[in-house]
């Protein structure tokens, strides 16, 4: 267990040292999320929201709309940044470093979660910046930042790490796994309710949204920050089930990928 923890920390450190070697990277990371966020916000504002079905319940003021969108973007970026470590698996293959990792007796599960958590530094930074936006925009709302924001941070970190771990394992299978990421990433942004509340979805879309842990994470976090009467227990159970299933799937796929690599020796193909 101690060794596993050591590997997770080493992997996080390595990811951070390798990817965030200059301060400008941190600022450039914020650029796109902020642009897309404002784009969405002003798109909403160009319509008379008071007459829109979306402007009820969860979103009933400009401030709540702002918080709804900010939480959506924070959540999505948490997931996205942890998945980015999976994208970099291709470079690890090409540089032969993946083979060097496999050469060691390191626990692969620790390596994939370490990779996923490697984006934690980036997320802390992004989360802090967006949190300032929440503070500014929620003057009229009763948000207790000292207790609620750390809870929100914990929920996003946990669920995004589990998701990132799965993505990392998928990328271990093949150099062509990026296709699968494309299939999962954009649908996740849409079906998880990053920009649009899932309550407005038709039944079939709601069924798809259940698959993504981001959906449940956002439901809970928005519930906390917007003080809505969501069914806490139900959302927490759904998120827990989703994370446990993803964790089991990660372990099963990891066993398969280990067997596949040892049988075919294709880890250095790129």
């Amino acid at each position: 267990m101690k060794d596993t923890f050591k590997i997770v920390i080493a992997e996080m450190k390595k990811q951070h040292r390798h990817n965030f070697h200059s301060y400008s990277i941190y600022f450039s990371l914020l650029l796109w999320p902020i642009i897309i966020f404002f784009n969405t916000y002003y798109t909403y504002l160009s319509f008379d929201l008071t007459k829109a079905p979306v402007f009820s319940g969860l979103i009933n003021s400009k401030q709540s709309l702002l918080i709804f969108l900010i939480t959506g973007f924070i959540g999505y970026n948490f997931f996205y940044s942890m998945v980015q470590s999976a994208w970099q698996m291709g470079a690890e293959r090409q540089n032969g470093t993946l083979e060097t990792i496999i050469l060691s007796p390191a626990n692969w599960l620790a390596v994939v979660y370490g990779r996923s958590l490697g984006a934690l530094f980036q997320n802390v930074w992004m989360f802090s910046t967006f949190s300032i936006l929440i503070i500014i925009s929620s003057r009229s709302l009763e948000v207790n930042f000292f207790t609620q924001i750390p809870i929100a941070f914990f929920i996003f970190t946990l669920s995004a790490t589990v998701w990132g771990g799965l993505m990392n394992v998928i990328f271990l299978f093949s150099r062509d796994a990026a296709i699968l990421n494309n299939v999962l990433d954009d649908p996740m942004e849409f079906f998880s309710g990053v920009r649009v509340p899932t309550e407005t979805f038709p039944v079939w879309a709601k069924m798809i949204s259940v698959i993504f842990p981001l959906t449940h994470s956002l439901t809970i976090v928005r519930g906390i920050l917007l003080k809505t009467n969501i069914a806490w227990m139900e959302a927490a159970i759904k998120l827990s089930i989703s994370l446990v299933l993803l964790f089991i799937l990660t372990i099963v796929l990891l066993k398969l990928v280990e067997k596949n690599i040892r049988d075919n020796g294709n880890i250095t193909f790129y």
Partner: peptide
């Protein structure tokens, strides 16, 4: 992108 020290720290940690 890592230094020799950082490379060895990482690979050493993989061996616990």
């Amino acid at each position: 992108r890592l230094t020799a020290q950082e490379n060895l720290e990482y690979f050493g940690a993989l061996y616990g």
